[in-house]
Design a protein around this nucleic acid. Sequence first.
DNA 1: CTGGATCCGTACCGATACTG
DNA 2: CAGTATCGGTACGGATCCAG
Lengths: 135, 135
Amino acid sequence: MRTPLPVDMFDEVCPSDLTPIRFGDKWAGMVVRCLEGGPRRFSELRVPLRGVTAKVLTASLRGLERDGFVRRTAHPDRTVEYELTPLGRSLLGPLDAACAWAAEHWEELLDAREAGVSGRRSPAAASPGPGRGPA
Amino acid sequence: MRTPLPVDMFDEVCPSDLTPIRFGDKWAGMVVRCLEGGPRRFSELRVPLRGVTAKVLTASLRGLERDGFVRRTAHPDRTVEYELTPLGRSLLGPLDAACAWAAEHWEELLDAREAGVSGRRSPAAASPGPGRGPA
DNA sequence: CTGGATCCGTACCGATACTG
DNA sequence: CAGTATCGGTACGGATCCAG
C-alpha cells in the first residue's frame, strides 16, 4: 500500500475520550489501523497521528514491538519501516468490533455525558471513536 | 441471579497486564462482568475484585454510572445495588470479543513477552486476561 | 455497609532541545 | 530521517484513616 495515509484519518477533537474501549496506550490502536494496509515508515505514521511527538510515538511502537504486534525493520538508507505481525493483524477483529460498537452507541454516549451527574469524571475512557476511530 | 460471585472469578496474577484491550479503567471491565447476571451490591462486587479498595471501586462505579453503563440504586437499609443499563449491557458484545481474542492468543502473548527485547516496557497493556478475563 | 478525605507513588503523555 | 535526553504536568490507582 503506497498511497499516503490521509491527514484526517482520525477525528482529532470530536469523539475522543468517549468510548471506554482502548487498545494498549493512547496511540496503539491508531497505529494498528495505520499499518492495516501494509508497512509504513515512521514519518508516514506521524501524518495521521497529528500532534504525536516522536518520543511518544516511539514509545508506543516499542511497546507494540515488544508485545509482538509490530515488527520493526531498519533499512540501510536510515529509514525504518513498521508492519503488523500476524498477531498484530489478529487485533483487527476486536478493533473492528470496538469501532462498530462505538459507532452504534455514540449517540447514547453523548446523551449519558450531558445528562450525567455533574462534575463526575470518567474513570479512564479514551481513544478516538466513531469518525474513524481506531479503538 | 442470587448466587454469590465466586472469589476466583478472575485470575489475579496470571494473565494480568497481558491483553492490550481495556474497557474503561482498570476495574470497569470486571465490574461489567460481575453485573452481567443481574444487580449486585457494593460488597458483593468486592469479593471477586480482590484487592480493590473501596475508594477505587467507588470511583470506577461512578465513572460507569456517569457514562451511562451502570445504574445505582440506594435502598433504605443503607445497602446499594448496581446494575447494568441497556447501554452497559451492550458492552458485553465487545467484551466477549476481547475475551475470545485474549483466550485465543494468550500463548503468543506470553511468547512475545519472554522473547521480547529485554528491558522494554509495554505501553498501557492491562486488565486480566483469559482465565476468565473481563477485558 | 458504603463510601468520602487525604496523601502519595507511578505511568503516561507532551514540549523542547539535541543527535547519528 | 528517526530517533534520544530531559523536564514537567496530570491522571490513575493504592493505602490509610474517617464518617453517615
